[in-house]
Design a protein around this nucleic acid. Structure first.
Length: 126
DNA sequence: TTTCTGACA
DNA sequence: TGTCAGAA
């Protein structure tokens, strides 16, 4: 890991700062942590400390949310990203960003993981 | 004052 | 998700 990455991973921001930087509520930020989307560290009196990396992820999540993805969809995106990191050790025809973009488009076009079906319905309901 | 956890409309 | 309570 490069020194730059180490710095990005240094957890130093309290939730209040992250709220301002991401425009997310404390409730949402804590919720995304529960969903294992970010891993803030703890310090003084059990307070969460976020890294620049966590903030980036939070901003990405905000983008996905803005495009209509629900938590399942977002978790799917990150799940794919992780799985790709492993496969990437052998071969890497696409960058992480490309892969994410592909699944992202797939999910949106299929509308399977959108918060609200812009067209009507999907499931077993009539 | 700020943040934490748990819980409920 | 918002918000309130009670405690660090």
């Amino acid at each position: 890991m490069s020194e730059k990455e180490l710095r990005r991973s240094l957890s130093v921001f309290p939730i209040g700062t992250v709220m301002k930087l991401t425009d997310l509520t404390a409730r949402q930020i804590r919720y995304y942590e529960e969903q294992n989307l970010i891993y803030p560290e703890r310090s003084e009196g059990n307070r969460r400390l976020y890294s620049l990396n966590d903030i980036d992820v939070l901003l990405e999540i905000k983008d996905y949310l803005a495009d209509g993805l629900n938590m399942a969809g977002i978790k799917h995106v990150y799940k794919m990203q992780k799985e790709d990191e492993k496969k990437a050790k052998d071969k890497k025809p696409l960058t992480d960003k490309d892969v994410r973009r592909i699944f992202y488009d797939e999910i949106l076009s299929q509308g399977g993981l959108s918060q609200k079906n812009p067209f009507g319905m999907k499931g077993p309901k009539l």
